Computed example of a mutant assay.
Amino acid sequence: MLNSQIHLDFDNVNSLSSSTTGVIIPSTGKDNWDAVITSCQNGKNNHFALGIHPWFVENHQMIDLYDLEVKIEEEKPIAVGECGLDYTKVKDQNTQRFFFDEQVALATRFDLPLIIHSVNATDDVTDLLKSYSKSRGVIHAFSGSLQQAENLLKINFSFGFGSTLTNPHAYKLHDIVKFLPIESIVIETDDRKNTDELIQVAERIARIKKLSVDQVIDQCDQNTFNIFNIS
């Protein structure tokens, strides 16, 4: 099965689940662009995305957006990301919005999907995405409300879910997964050390959606292929 987001270049994430058949490795900023590219050179089913994470926007300048554009043109990532807004971790909302806006514009220019980090900022993320009619991609580790999920679904965005979903008391997330069409869901482990949790996420989705685990894996894999144009 495909892992739609895993930080395989992180020190605490150093192995793959035996059930994993392919991965997408997003970057967090200029300091690890080369690392994620290198980590994908030895696996034909390993794919990378390039972006500037909202946690690290304060370490970046305008010139880094130009360098990102050059990297995208030269290295051909499958997505722009990880980018987005996080109003809990980073207080400077204006700088975050500027870098996010610029990256959505880059994704539109290069016709690439986005991998978006959104924490306590989903309404602003949605409003910005609406201003780019061709924007598409995944809200990874979705943590918004059911109404926010519905609004994002209307503009053709998909939703990544990880180990938080396996918590039996995560009732809000369970309701959102129940509401969403299975065609809009992908599975991830993000920065989790135990990548075997990938199958546990699939099992939880299967229970919520009343589908077999194989059906969930097959569909979520296909969703990942479709979103990121992976053949």
Rank of each mutant, 00 (worst) to 15 (best):
S158D: 13
D92L: 06
I63W: 03
L16Q: 03
F179P: 03
N14T: 12
L198Q: 10
V70E: 12
Q200Y: 10
K89C: 02
S19Y: 12
D92Q: 05
F99V: 10
S131W: 04
V177N: 05
D64F: 04
V70I: 14
N94G: 10
Q41L: 15
N223G: 01
K30H: 10
R192G: 04
F56A: 10
Q147C: 06
I115N: 09
G43T: 06
N167Q: 11
L2W: 15
R136G: 06
I6P: 00
I37S: 05
T164C: 09
S143K: 08
M62P: 01
S145T: 15
D124K: 15
G29V: 07
S118Y: 07
L153Y: 11
T166C: 04
S19K: 15
V104N: 02
N32K: 11
D111R: 14
P54N: 09
T108D: 13
F228M: 11
Q93N: 07
F99G: 03
N167P: 02
H47E: 03
F157A: 11
H169R: 15
L152C: 02
L65G: 05
L152I: 09
G162D: 04
E197L: 12
S15L: 03
L50I: 12
I176R: 12
I37G: 05
S39H: 13
N14W: 04
M62T: 14
F98C: 07
I227Y: 06
S184T: 11
I52W: 00
E58A: 14
F100G: 01
H47F: 14
V186H: 06
W33V: 03
S135R: 08
I6A: 03
S163K: 15
D127A: 15
V80D: 04
N42I: 10
S184W: 00
R207H: 09
H7Y: 13
Y87S: 05
F10I: 07
D34C: 08
T21C: 08
A206K: 05
K134N: 09
L146N: 10
V177W: 00
D9G: 01
A121P: 00
I182W: 02
F142L: 08
T88N: 13
R109M: 10
G84V: 13
N167L: 13
N167T: 12
D31N: 15
E197C: 07
P168S: 13
P77C: 08
F99D: 01
L106E: 00
F99K: 12
P113Q: 08
A105F: 12
I72E: 01
L173C: 05
T224A: 06
T166W: 01
L153S: 14
T20K: 05
P113R: 11
S163W: 03
L146D: 03
A105L: 13
S231Y: 11
S184G: 01
S118F: 06
Y66D: 15
H7N: 15
T88R: 14
S27K: 12
T189N: 06
E102L: 07
K76S: 11
H7I: 08
R97S: 09
Q61Y: 08
T122Y: 06
L180I: 09
G81Q: 04
D92S: 02
Q5N: 12
L198R: 09
G43P: 02
T21N: 15
V57T: 11
N94V: 13
A107V: 04
I185Q: 07
C83E: 04
L173T: 01
P26E: 02
D127R: 14
Q147V: 11
K76Q: 14
R136Y: 10
I37Y: 05
T122K: 02
D92C: 02
G84Q: 10
N226D: 15
E203G: 06
T189W: 03
E73A: 13
